[in-house]
Amino acid sequence: MLAKRKIRGKDLATKIGITEQNMSLLRRGKVKGVRFSTLELICQFLECQPGDILEYK
């Protein structure tokens, strides 16, 4: 979604108020969970649905 919207992870992190390191961990799938409030902010900013950015493994 970031590439589709031509937005860098660094810029998204700044806009939604999380650290660049946390954004990097989210993007690489290195987290065990994500807060709904963070997910909501990401989806609002990217104008997408959670299913567009989440993958079940």
Rank of each mutant, 00 (worst) to 15 (best):
M1N: 02
M1G: 02
L2A: 01
L2I: 08
A3F: 04
A3D: 14
A3Y: 05
K4Y: 06
R5D: 06
K6G: 09
K6T: 07
K6Q: 12
I7P: 07
I7T: 14
R8H: 08
R8I: 09
G9D: 02
G9L: 04
K10H: 05
K10N: 04
D11W: 02
D11F: 03
D11P: 03
D11Q: 07
T14Q: 07
K15V: 07
K15D: 01
I16T: 10
I16Q: 10
G17A: 13
I18M: 03
I18G: 02
I18A: 02
I18V: 14
I18L: 04
T19P: 09
T19W: 08
T19L: 10
T19G: 15
T19I: 11
T19Q: 07
T19H: 09
E20D: 09
Q21V: 06
Q21M: 04
N22T: 12
N22V: 10
M23Y: 11
M23G: 00
M23T: 06
M23K: 01
S24P: 03
S24I: 06
S24E: 05
L25T: 06
L26T: 06
R27Q: 15
R28H: 08
G29L: 00
G29I: 05
V31D: 12
V31Y: 15
V31Q: 15
K32T: 09
K32W: 00
K32L: 05
V34Q: 03
R35L: 11
R35H: 14
F36W: 10
F36N: 08
F36Y: 13
S37H: 13
S37M: 11
S37G: 12
T38W: 12
T38Q: 13
E40H: 15
L41P: 03
I42K: 00
I42S: 00
I42T: 04
I42G: 00
I42H: 01
C43G: 03
C43I: 06
C43V: 11
C43M: 09
Q44S: 12
Q44E: 10
Q44I: 10
L46P: 10
E47T: 05
C48R: 12
P50S: 00
G51T: 13
G51D: 04
D52W: 02
I53W: 05
I53Q: 01
I53F: 03
I53Y: 03
L54F: 01
Y56D: 07
Y56E: 12
Y56L: 13
Y56S: 11
K57N: 08
K57D: 09
